[in-house]
Design a protein around this nucleic acid. Sequence first.
DNA 1: GAAGAATGCAACTGCTAATGTTACGTATGG
DNA 2: CCATACGTAACATTAGCAGTTGCATTCTTC
Lengths: 142, 142
Amino acid sequence: MKRNSRLSLALHTLSHMAGDPNRVRTSADIADHAGTNPVVVRRVLGKLREAGLLTSEKGHAGGWRLAKSAESITLADVYLALNEQLVSGVTEDAGPSHCSVETGLQKRIAEVLEEIEESLVQRLRETSITDVHPKSCSYCDN
Amino acid sequence: MKRNSRLSLALHTLSHMAGDPNRVRTSADIADHAGTNPVVVRRVLGKLREAGLLTSEKGHAGGWRLAKSAESITLADVYLALNEQLVSGVTEDAGPSHCSVETGLQKRIAEVLEEIEESLVQRLRETSITDVHPKSCSYCDN
DNA sequence: GAAGAATGCAACTGCTAATGTTACGTATGG
DNA sequence: CCATACGTAACATTAGCAGTTGCATTCTTC
């Protein structure tokens, strides 16, 4: 895997779950499908659970499933749950500048980028995870 | 500095230039202001030059300046010049999957993310670099 | 209650991308 | 002809992230 695969992994998994909501999946199953490691899966899905998108159960018959209807889960929910901040995260350096003009400028840039970030989230809110799924998928229970 | 500082550096520099367009700045000057290295500055600004946003001149009185009016430069121009792909870049892993359902799903996810990316660019097009500048900046020639 | 199966979590490793740095070539102007 | 500045390549350093291992915990089933 590469780069920021967390969002990709999350969407991938949620899309599968949307296709067969009643099935309980273990992190090992999910990891196999995604070609990754169970611990990585738990790390990512754990965030989604904190956000109330998934539930997990320990023990013998445990595993993961959707905490609510697939239609009600938007890409914004996923994005925010993972703390992505793709846009506004670019200015996280800061560091006290010597020049007051510089700090004012950096502040202004941060403002603008947060505006952009906000409109990105608005856009993500328009798409449900059920839209991230091939129309005709007869094997979505795989 | 941290993470993806290229976009931040580019906006920072362009904002300064917008405040005093006639001044020619060396990469050393810019690096000092941004707290980074002249070579890094040239790398980033070089992309902006390729995109026709800046011009650079070698030699004794050389340096960088805007290639066109500040008002006509949008955040989308900068973003595209730097090849950022903040959103759609998250699926760059791919790798041939064994299962046709998987590949279909990945393709669909990529489609959706590219749609999102496109609307991000549309949003960026609405903001000029002159908007990324404190309203009252009497020291913008620093 | 013991065994097995699953998550939860912490620590560590290894890899990769990006930044930072050095060095040298090239062009320009005084 | 020399100082200055960009252009570029090569290398070093760093930060973030996926991957891995190990162990505790919880739940089901026998």
